[in-house]
Amino acid sequence: MGSAQCQPLKLKITSRGDKLAGVRSHVGEIAEACGFAKQAVYDIKVAVGEAVANAVEHGSPKGEMNNVVIDFKCDKNDLKIKVVDEGIFKRTVPGPSDMADYRAHGILIMLALMDKVTINESDHGTTVLLAKCYRTDN
């Protein structure tokens, strides 16, 4: 568990929907290399997939002219993944009353599957920071 030797990794993609599957596949490989068990690898793939899909759909005002950058940092305690786009985040973290709004599902899924989700907005883009801790039960 928790390989401290993982090198920081950065992935930069053109903001296009057909890039999502490739990103997920990379994410899965990285999570496996970091020592996560099967279910946690799946959780990380889904959560990062949601963040990147959101970045492509809502964080790319110039469409394919925009990029999405995904940063991975694996250390002793957790794997941190940073997804950075070039748009402005339109949605806040949903509350219980938003459960009926299926469009909020992406954020709910990220919150449920990861140990920490942070969303930072700036004039230059939105950064979603996801972290998954190492545990003996995953």
Binding site: V46, G49, A53, Y102, R103, H105
Partner: peptide, 9 residues
């Protein structure tokens, strides 16, 4: 083998 909020929507 994979379903995200796009499919759930």
């Amino acid at each position: 083998d994979y379903l995200d909020s796009g499919g759930i929507g």
